[in-house]
Structures are given as C-alpha cells and as structure tokens.
C-alpha cells in the first residue's frame, strides 16, 4: 500500500468518525430537547397545582367574607329596626311630654279644656268628640267642650246609663273593634270612651265619635295618650276647676269685705 492509499483510508475513517459524531450529536440534541420539554411540562403542572391551591384558598376567603357580609347585613338590619324602635319611642315620649307639659301649664279651666281638645285633635287624630264632666248635683255627665259637633248635639248622660255612663261608672276605657262602626252619628255610641280618673275617682269622660279621614287605626302611641289623658287631663281639669271656683269665691269674699269696709259706722 502506498502512502496515497494509506492517506485515503485514514481520511475515510476520519469521515466515518465525523459522521458518527454528527449522528451522536443529533441524538443528544434530540434528547436534550425532549428533556427540556419534560422539564417545562412538569413546571406547568407544578404551577397549575400552585394556582389550584391559590384558587381554593381564595374561594375559602370569599366564602368566609360572604358569611361575614351576611352577618354584618343581619346586624345592620337589626340596628336599623332598633333605630326605628328608638325613633318611635322618642317620638312617643316627645308627644307624651308635650301633652303632659301643656295640660299642667295653666290653672285656667277653659284653657285646660282647650288643651285637651288640641291633644285629642292633633296628637290622636280625632275629628268629632266631646268632653263630659260629672255634675255632682245631678249625678249626670254633662258636655263641657266639643269638637266637630255642637255642644247641643253632645249628650247629657245619667251616671251608669248606656255606654258612656257605664265607662264613667266602671272606670274602664272602651274601644270599638271597628273604628268606622259609627258612620251615622249617634251621641250615645262613641267609638272610644275614656274615663277621666283621679286615682279611682272618675270625674268625667272623653267620648270620641269619629277620627280624621287619614286615621286608619289607633297606634300604641294613641293608647299611651289615652292613658295619659285619663290621668293627667283629669287632674288638670279638676285642679283648674277648683282654682277657678276658689278664685270666684275669693273675689266674692273680697267684694263683700270691701262693702263692709265702705259701710258708714252708725
């Protein structure tokens, strides 16, 4: 073998070796690419797992927040209804305070009666009613003030007679079941009759025949006002009546004394 052949043989071996290397290189590249893909895929799975865990956590948080929101909402509703209750209570107390304050603000009999009328009209919403007081001499309930009806249309009732007389005798308030029951005016049949009492002693009654058109029913406040009127109006009426009588007597006595002073000595 000459040198040229030897070189050619060597060159061919070198060529084969290079081809093998290239093949090997290709195979390794493929393996690397495959491995990289695997790594990437396993990374995605891990990330997905993390995301899933995070979503589950967030869902739990949302659930907890929803529960808290509902609880707060319920508390809010509770507070709102309590606020309304307190508001109503305030309103009622203001009404009772004003009514009581006004009733005891004067000792003038006619002014006390006017205040009783004002309270029944403005705070209770009565349209047609009468205040009747017991005349000790005749033992009759006699009208002393009216609203929405003439004094002549108001009844004079014997103590113990009929609905009004019974209320005065027994000292128990009367409320008709149906407020619109008395469409045709009957002076003996009020829809509400309140005894005016000083302790257990009845001095008169308030007889209500009709209420204002906008008044649909009596409220708790109205019953409170009826109670207040039963006691405070009675006291105020009684005190003012006594005061007016004593004032009148005092004036008479004073005039008599003045006459005596003026009389020339014999």
């Amino acid at each position: 073998m000459n040198k040229a052949e030897e070189f050619l043989q060597m060159f061919r071996k070198g060529e084969e070796f290079t081809k093998d290397l290239l093949k090997e290189n290709e195979s390794l590249r493929y393996k690397i690419a495959h491995l990289e893909q695997l790594i990437e895929r396993s990374g995605d799975e891990a990330r997905t797992k993390i995301y899933e865990d995070r979503i589950a956590l967030l869902e739990q948080e949302i659930h907890a927040l929803k529960e808290r929101y509902n609880k707060v909402e319920e508390e809010n509703k509770d507070f709102a209804s309590k606020y309304l209750e307190v508001e109503e209570e305030n309103n009622n107390l203001a009404n009772l305070y004003v009514a009581s304050y006004q009733l005891h603000s004067t000792l003038d009999f006619s002014e006390v009666l006017r205040i009783v009328l004002e309270i029944v009209i403005n705070l209770i919403g009565a349209e047609k009613f009468a205040v009747l007081l017991i005349d000790d001499k005749t033992n009759e309930l006699v009208p002393v003030a009216t609203e929405g009806l003439d004094m002549g249309s108001a009844p004079t009732v014997k103590f113990g007679d009929g609905l009004i007389g019974t209320v005065a005798k027994e000292g128990q308030s009367y409320f008709a079941d149906d407020m619109s029951v008395n469409t045709a005016f009957d002076p003996m049949k009020p829809i509400v009759c309140i005894p005016l009492k000083i302790k257990e002693h009845v001095i008169g009654v308030i007889a209500i025949y009709t209420v204002l058109i906008q008044k649909e029913a009596f409220s708790t406040m109205d019953y409170e006002l009826f109670n207040l009127l039963a006691g405070h109006a009675a006291t105020a009426i009684f005190a003012s009546k006594l005061y007016t009588q004593s004032e009148r007597k005092l004036t008479t006595i004073q005039s008599f004394l003045d006459l005596l002073k003026e009389k020339p000595r014999q």
Partner: peptide, 8 residues
C-alpha cells in the same frame, strides 16, 4: 295656632 302642636 295650637301651642301644643307648636311645642311638638
């Protein structure tokens, strides 16, 4: 005109 209402 009602003193009661005015006060209220």
């Amino acid at each position: 005109d009602s003193p009661t209402m005015r006060q209220l």
